[in-house]
């Protein structure tokens, strides 16, 4: 089973940051405080949307056909995500 990357603190719901990275080959451990990239701060559904958007070369029509929903529905999802990302940046 692929473990889901937690992005929020289960206790206070604040955004988590990366403090430790490990090399699986030589077990070197790097410690620090690295903020999560914006892509990882998005929900799995939003990440999947971005991936699909990229794979269809940014064609919302093609995405709509692949997902079996209409063009305005896909466009609304994209608009909502843009707004979400703008909010995350602030």
């Amino acid at each position: 089973m692929k473990a889901k990357l937690p992005t929020q603190c289960p206790s206070c719901e604040t955004l988590l940051s990366v403090t430790q990275l490990t090399c699986e080959s030589c077990q070197t451990v790097v410690q620090g405080n690295y903020p999560l990239p914006i892509f990882l701060q998005l929900s799995p559904k939003e990440q999947e949307f971005i991936l699909q958007f990229f794979l269809t070369s940014g064609s919302l029509k093609e995405m709509a056909a692949q997902l079996g929903i209409s063009y305005p529905t896909v466009r609304n999802q994209l608009d909502d995500m843009i707004q979400h990302i703008k909010d995350l940046n602030i």
Binding site: A64, A65, G68, I69, S70, Y71, P72, T73
Partner: peptide, 8 residues
Amino acid sequence: PIEFYNDR
């Protein structure tokens, strides 16, 4: 229907 069906 606008949410699901192709516009054309």
